[in-house]
Write a protein that binds this DNA or RNA. Structure first.
Lengths: 364, 364
DNA sequence: CGAGGTGTTGAGAACGTTCTCAAGACGGTC
DNA sequence: GACCGTCTTGAGAACGTTCTCAACACCTCG
């Protein structure tokens, strides 16, 4: 154990252990690593020496020679979001159980943060990346990291033309089904609160949402497409003022829902694209004294922890968030351990949870 | 750039860059690292070469020689818990802004997971650790990591006899104030739902909660002590059946609150020690059709995102969760950069948010 | 008794950086 | 022209592992 300038002890290294056990570093490494062959008595001697010195392998050094850091990077927009938080839990649990550690980065949907996060994680030589890519902008950094040979799994969102696995749900179908449910109750004035950015809104308000399904932010894009599918199939025309995309934060949603409810002809039902948007809607209702579901129905995505204790208990279509994280991580680890095949796109089933926030439209 | 067996390109390394720029690795390192002195023209040449090759520094290799990984480990019980989630956000933001990455580990309050997490993070040579230590059990692993020279900051909880900084709130005082608030409304039958473990309950039900403030799980312990302070100061005796500690998960809280409400003499007010417990209480009320605050008042800790849209909107005493994370991380980074002084214990101020879940006890 | 395993061991290279040290180039001063 | 200082550069060690290779000891078999 080498002595530091200040006289304190540094951390014990392999040579320290080897010396104490009276063997070479090679043998010590074999004994500790449990590979190669080493006589039982020497093995025990090495183990004892390691124990006595409080030896901890230096994974960094190991990574240098093995070329694998046993670390994955997770790049999500925000841990606060129930979807990401639960998925993250699925990811960390899976990674941990397979001997991998997780390096975490938040992006807040900002492309620049995403770029820098990916770059920093690359420098740390992560073995793979789970990314929920930001809504818009170019994907050069993602293409590059994939080209450099780092496996990438996309969470929740799909990016056209990117050779990466994807794990999520069938957003288009889920949104279509949700909309059909509202339609079946008799609603015609159905608004969506997407949590998308203003650039996305531009696409939404094009005639018939042309090309929205190819929108880069594929969650919002796909869900919007599903909504359109159901609306047009029901013979309804899309009203631009019912298509909201004003940012992903709760306050944005509050503003947006209030705007909706201030309309001369307010919607009779609102489809919220994630639990933050639902929360925003609920808050607006409370502030304005709007009764739900009597005056407006609210249908949300994602079953947040609070969804059943809120007033009214929220009807939601929910994704298996934890399982999505698990699946994403498993995919990634499989790739890391060398699995070779063209990208796969897993789609886990959604569940519709009926509670009390839906009612037929009030007749006026 | 070396060729791999399969003919694909590996990642460009410093020698690759140096070769392309026609300089030595030492010079390339200087140019890239921005230290030492290097002629402007060569510097540019190196930078261009790096750019052309898509060079990414290998932080692992750098760490080996500098001895610093620029990585911190965060060991918390559960990202799902609002307190930890928000603190984590504070930690990651701060770490990131100061050039550090965050390695995340969940423990679910299990000592064994905590031990293994700490050990694994040590092997990864994290520069420091933010830990929310599990409730009970021995702290040998913590003492060891501190003794080995890795700075540790304790989040939320304080462990007696451990040479580590602590960041949290004055739990005892906060709980005392909260209890006094209920007392002032006229409540006498006040129960606490602590989220502690059964072992903790043992301590709680000792006469006068003797020694509870020295309980290892200092959050629960301190808060329980604060509750006791207020109750005894008001001349009330502690009823063991009002002291709940049955686990930290939501279902545990539901069970426990239901048990409380089934009592021959149910409490007229409940003090929930964290937002999961509050949620459990709310769920129990809903399931049993118990009206809050008419039949029971509910006062919770931590202002979860849903606290104001729930029915009834929840009155809470809240910790500055994000700021606690920030402070913890800053403390840690200061230690890492060499600050030497005896452990400090930061206590951030709490805020009382009055909403609608409190009322005087119903006269029966 | 020698050939041919098999089991056990150590020497030393490699991974990709940083950093110390020494040396060369260049300019200015006496 | 010799000397000194500063700027710029490169050689090579070091960090703590893993892993290849060769050497040695021992055993078995013919």
């Amino acid at each position: 154990m080498r002595r530091l300038d200040d006289g304190s002890r540094g951390v014990a290294t392999l040579p320290d252990v080897a010396e104490r056990a009276g063997v070479s570093t090679a043998t010590a490494a074999r004994a500790l690593g449990g590979y190669g062959s080493v006589r039982e008595t020497t093995r025990q001697r090495v183990l004892d020496a390691a124990e006595a010195l409080g030896y901890r392998a230096n994974v960094l050094a190991r990574s240098m020679v093995t070329g694998s850091s046993h670390t994955i990077g997770v790049v999500i927009s925000d841990i606060e979001n129930p979807f990401f938080r639960k998925s993250l839990r699925g990811i960390t649990d899976t990674a941990r159980s397979r001997g991998f550690e997780v390096l975490l980065a938040n992006t807040d949907e900002e492309l620049e943060k995403e770029r820098s996060a990916v770059s920093l994680l690359e420098e740390r030589r992560v073995d793979g990346l789970v990314i929920c890519p930001a809504d818009a902008g170019d994907r050069k950094h993602l293409r590059e990291v994939i080209a450099a040979g780092t496996p990438v799994v996309l969470l929740d969102r799909r990016v056209a033309g990117l050779a990466a696995d994807t794990v999520g749900i069938d957003n288009r179908k889920a949104a279509r089904l949700a909309t059909e449910r509202l339609l079946a109750l008799g609603h015609k004035r159905i608004a969506i609160v997407t949590g998308g950015t203003p650039e996305i809104r531009e696409r939404l308000v094009r005639p018939d949402m042309k090309g929205v399904e190819r929108l880069s932010a594929t969650t919002v894009g796909s869900r919007a497409a599903g909504y359109r599918d159901a609306m047009t199939a029901a013979g309804l025309t899309l009203r631009p003022e019912y298509l909201s995309a004003n940012g992903f934060r709760r306050e944005d949603a509050v503003d947006e829902v209030c705007r909706l409810m201030d309309l001369a002809e307010p919607p009779t039902a609102i489809l919220a694209f994630d639990s933050i948007q639902s929360l925003g809607a609920l808050q607006c209702f409370r502030e304005r004294g709007i009764r739900c579901p009597e005056e407006v129905s609210l249908l949300g995505f994602d079953d947040a922890e609070w969804a059943d204790v809120v007033e009214p208990p929220l009807t939601v279509v929910t994704q298996p968030m934890y399982e999505i994280g698990v699946a994403a991580c498993e995919r990634l680890l499989d790739r890391i351990s060398g699995e070779q095949r063209s990208p796969v796109h897993d789609r886990l089933p959604t569940v519709f949870i009926e509670r009390s926030s839906l009612a037929p439209p009030a007749r006026s």
